[in-house]
Design a protein around this nucleic acid. Structure first.
Length: 428
RNA sequence: UCCCCGAUAGCUCAAUCGGCAGAGCGGGUGGCUGUUAACCACUAGGUUCGAGGUUCAAGUCCUCGUCGGGGAGCCA
């Protein structure tokens, strides 16, 4: 593989890949080749390869699939430090038509229509490599902290955070099923069984959101911990986010550099994070000129304004219960607030985690379900968790794409997932 | 669902007050033995998103529609 070539200097290798770009000076061709693991410049000199191969190279179009043999040579002029001196070229396929994605810039509509080809670019490879590292680090961190992975179903009955934004599907003779908006309620059941658990998978929101922070299908990692309170919950979130950022910094420096990410902004991401109460946050925003009234949830602008006041992630704690989900535990001293937290990423990226201590009192939970007008019958098994050995517990959901977008410094969340699903786009 | 913006060559865009449809990249041909989104010369390439309307004249102005982008609400 190309990424291993620096340790193959002065040896002959065979590379199977695609031609990323080509330059030529008449008697010498420079082929930029990629194989999925990296990029290298292959140099073909007339006379050092059979003539028919030299002229075949001249006719290659971008993204031709080729097999090259040659000598790996150290060269200070090459970005990766090595080049390939070609001795043989086999053309597997020369494209049947001009490759649609040119070397210069493209519009976003065109790129999204060609997402299946766009992912071949170096920038997309860097982003998806970082995404993989984020996910890997989460799993490693939770596994090493004693968590059990207990995945939740994607097809569910009418249960979730609320009736809005559910995708419906026909489910045999049982009527409607819904694509999961969250695995949390299942994670709570699993926490009662196994103590420390998490689920991780795609979730679906049929919200008609059209912003740089929203997808209709996104991946969420949702830890749930028995006997953890609101403060334990935030400590876990802080440790997880720090581990993820460190994992990316340790293993993906090259990718971050390719994305021209400001590394110092990431190197600052160490404990402790900032904490601010909802009450104080509203007061601060009003002082900064926002017209947010007390009692409302923050809009995108408010969130951006707030995060710009801090150089590290900030927890916003204890929102009014009327803007939060029914399962959040009531504040012990303020019955208008709940024990929840949103973790806002800096540099204007905003909410990456939403978490809370869960309501473990059966009567209070029933009251909240009725207040919200939710179908009580659908929550039968969930209420059982408060009937049979109820226990204080807390958990949170972290949106993987939002974390990746923040760490990579992306303008839009759609680049943080291989195949983005947005309200007006289902293909490719 | 609402608000704003856009649609012109394969791609990214320009076209002044309503007055001949342009450039760069990509393609083709030729040149070049060290190029780094290579360069140089020549060349082909257009139903200006669709349907109406105003006008001597519409890419440009008006109406409706289609598609897309940005944002709001909601959220991770």
């Amino acid at each position: 593989m190309i990424r291993d070539l620096p340790s193959w200097v002065d040896r002959e290798v065979t590379l199977k890949g695609w031609m990323y770009n080509k330059r030529s000076s008449g008697k010498i061709h420079f082929l930029q080749v990629r194989d999925g693991s990296g990029f290298i410049q292959a140099v073909m000199v007339k006379g050092e390869v059979p003539d028919e191969q030299f002229s075949a190279a001249k006719g290659l179009w971008l993204e031709a699939s080729i097999i090259l043999t040659g000598l790996v040579r150290k060269d200070d002029r090459a970005p990766s430090g090595v080049e390939l001196s070609v001795t043989g070229l086999e053309v597997v396929q020369n494209p049947v038509d001009e490759y649609p994605i040119a070397k210069k810039e493209h519009g976003i509509d065109f790129l999204l229509d060609h997402r299946h080809l766009w992912i071949r670019s170096a920038r997309q490879k860097a982003i998806l490599t970082i995404r993989e590292r984020v996910i890997w680090t989460c799993r490693e961190f939770l596994h090493n902290s004693g968590f059990l992975l207990v995945d939740s179903p994607l097809l569910t009955g009418a249960i979730g955070e609320g009736a809005d934004g559910l995708f419906e599907v026909e489910y045999f003779d049982l009527g409607k099923a819904y694509l999961a908006q969250t695995g949390q309620l299942y994670a709570e059941a699993a926490a009662a069984a196994f103590g420390k658990v998490y689920c991780f998978g795609p979730t679906f929101r049929a919200e008609k959101s059209k912003t740089r922070r929203h997808l209709t299908e996104f991946w969420m990692i949702e830890p749930e911990v028995a006997y953890a309170d609101h403060h334990d919950n935030m400590a876990l979130q802080e440790a997880l986010v720090c581990a993820v950022v460190k994992g990316v910094l340790d293993h993906c420096k090259k990718e971050l550099e390719l994305l021209e990410r400001d590394l110092s902004a990431l190197e600052r991401i160490t404990p402790p994070f900032y904490h601010i109460s909802y009450d104080d946050a509203v007061a601060l925003l009003q002082k900064l000129g926002s017209d947010i009234p007390y009692g409302d949830d923050f809009g995108g602008d408010d969130e951006t304004l707030l995060t710009k006041q801090f150089d590290k992630p900030v927890f916003v704690e204890c929102y009014p219960k009327k803007v939060k989900a029914f399962y959040m535990k009531q504040h012990p001293e303020r019955d208008d607030l709940v024990l929840c937290d949103d973790l806002l990423a800096p540099e204007g990226y905003g909410e990456i985690i939403g978490g809370s201590q869960r309501e473990d009192n059966l009567d209070l939970l029933l009251k909240r379900i009725r207040e919200e007008g939710l179908p009580e019958s659908s929550y039968g098994w969930y209420l059982d968790l408060r009937r049979y050995g109820s226990f204080p517990h807390s958990g949170f959901g972290m949106g993987i794409e939002r974390v990746v977008a923040w760490i990579c410094g992306l303008q839009h969340i759609r680049e943080a997932i291989p195949w983005p699903r947005t309200i007006y786009r289902l293909n490719p």
